[in-house]
Each structure stands twice: as structure tokens, then as C-alpha cells.
């Protein structure tokens, strides 16, 4: 469905993506994990058309979309739920949701209301707060709103940038379950960028690990969960060799605990 070949993206002089090759099949939930600064958000931004790559190609449904801007890509069915949710805080939950359907307002004006009702049904917590400004919602509710806003675009591919950021584990679990459900029941292809390795790989079909702008490991979620290379990509060294960074008197291995 989405094929990425040798993608190179720069932020000014900074070479962030250094040749990404990736294929995402229809109806799949793919997790992209990696430590800070590995290029995860840039990859999603490039796929969504927010950043234009310098080299390489992005093929979506046999059509090249490499240099299409975000305004052209969203109507084609690729939608990004940006990092830190980016809720429109001064406008109501309803308007936030309707803004998600912005690009198809003229085309399918009639179906928007139905989609809106469907999305509201999908997130019962939002139903109680439709008239509340987005900024007054809790972190978890905001994330649900951000996903709902993304769904209003009726995407074939939904891309989420760190939806677990700053959320309690239980809420993260809820959000991940919602994503799995979207994938299974609605057939939406999902690309999930996460720091929370365990939470992401638990629900994903496949995953790949990004480090220094390159995909270093990829495979099924189960494979990745037990792959020592994944820990290496996260912490810079193999977990077996991991030592306590400071002499705190405790013998536990920090790296292992964190994962």
C-alpha cells in the first residue's frame, strides 16, 4: 500500500533520514520504534508531506507522492496525528473533530455528519464534552480527540506520532486497544511511532527499529520483543553488557528494567 525507497530528509543542513526503505501492507499495524533523535517523527512528517525529502521516493497505491505537499496527501487518504496531540485548545471538541474532515467538506458534505456521529460513538468519553474547549480535556481525552480528528479525514493510512506521550499506563493501554480495533474492524492501515516499545509492539503486527536515521532491525512484533539488537538500538550497547551507570550500590541492570 505504501512503499518507501531510499528516503533521505534534511532539516536545514542536518541529515536526519539516511536512506529509509519500508513497505506497509494494507490493513497492517506497523510500529516504528527508536530512541530520541532517531528520526521517527521526521519519517512520519515526510510520509505526510509536512517535510519534503531530498532523495528517494514514496509510492502510495502505485502512485508517486514523494513531492506532494500535505494539502495534496491528506485528500488521498494519508493522515497524521501529530506529536503532543496538538489539539486546537480554544475551539470546542466538536469543531476539533469537524476540522479533521476539512479537506472533504465540499466533496462529501452529507457523509460528514454521519462520520462525526460514528467517531463520537467510538469515543464515549468525548461524547460528554462536545461543547468543551479542547484545551480543557485531560491528556488521555485529548489523545482520543486527536485520533478522532484524524479519523474524520477518513484515512486509509493513519499515522500516529507518539500517542502515549505523557499518559498513564492504563490510558496508554486503552489507546493501543483502540488502534488495534481500528485496524481489525475498519481495516485502517496504521503506522505507529512510539518510544514505548512494549506497548507499541504488543498491538502491532510488525515493527521496525530506527536508529540514527536508518532502519536497523525489522520483523514481526514477537521477534522484535525478544531481539537483543532492539535494546542495543535503544541504549547503544547490548543489554548483556549493560552496567549500572553510577555506583549506587544496587546490582540491578538499569537497561533491562526500563524495557
Amino acid at each position: 500500500m505504501l512503499k518507501v525507497n531510499n528516503l533521505h530528509t534534511y532539516h536545514g543542513f542536518l541529515h536526519v533520514l539516511k536512506g529509509i526503505d519500508l513497505e506497509v501492507l494494507e490493513g497492517e499495524l506497523v510500529a516504528i520504534v527508536g530512541s530520541n533523535g532517531s528520526g521517527k517523527s521526521t519519517l512520519l512528517g515526510t510520509l505526510a508531506g509536512v517535510y519534503l525529502p531530498k532523495e528517494g521516493s514514496i509510492i502510495y497505491k502505485d502512485e508517486e507522492i514523494t513531492n506532494d505537499g500535505v494539502q495534496m496527501i491528506v485528500p488521498k487518504g494519508i493522515c497524521l496525528v501529530p506529536e503532543r496531540r496538538q489539539i486546537f485548545s480554544s475551539i470546542t471538541v466538536k469543531d476539533n473533530l469537524l476540522l479533521g474532515a476539512y479537506h472533504r467538506y465540499q466533496k462529501d458534505k452529507k457523509t460528514i455528519n454521519k462520520d462525526y456521529e460514528d467517531v463520537v460513538e467510538m469515543f464515549p468519553r468525548l461524547k460528554q464534552m462536545l461543547d468543551r474547549p479542547g484545551g480543557l480535556l485531560s491528556g488521555g481525552e485529548q489523545q482520543m480527540l486527536a485520533i478522532g480528528r484524524g479519523l474524520m479525514a477518513k484515512p486509509k493510512v493513519l499515522m500516529l506520532d507518539e500517542p502515549s506521550l505523557g499518559l498513564a499506563p492504563l490510558i496508554v493501554k486503552d489507546i493501543m486497544m483502540i488502534l488495534r480495533k481500528l485496524c481489525d474492524e475498519m481495516g485502517t492501515t496504521i503506522i505507529l511511532v512510539e518510544q514505548n516499545l512494549k506497548a507499541a509492539l504488543k498491538v502491532a503486527d510488525r515493527g521496525c527499529v530506527l536508529a540514527h536515521g536508518k532502519i536497523v532491525v525489522s520483523g514481526t512484533s514477537q521477534e522484535l520483543l525478544h531481539n537483543p539488537k532492539v535494546q542495543e538500538a535503544y541504549f547503544g550497547k547490548s543489554s548483556k553488557k549493560t552496567e549500572v551507570p553510577f555506583n549506587t550500590g544496587k546490582k540491578e541492570v538499569r537497561g533491562k528494567k526500563l524495557i
Partner: peptide, 20 residues
């Protein structure tokens, strides 16, 4: 719809860009 789009810019340019 234009008003909503304008408000979205004031709210978050990143997100309004992302919704097209």
C-alpha cells in the same frame, strides 16, 4: 468551515497543517 480553519491556525499550525 473557513472560520474553523482560521481558528485552527491560531490553535496549532502543526495540527492544522496535518488536517490539510
Amino acid at each position: 468551515r473557513i472560520g474553523r480553519a482560521l481558528r485552527s491556525i491560531e490553535g496549532s499550525e502543526v495540527a492544522s497543517d496535518a488536517v490539510g
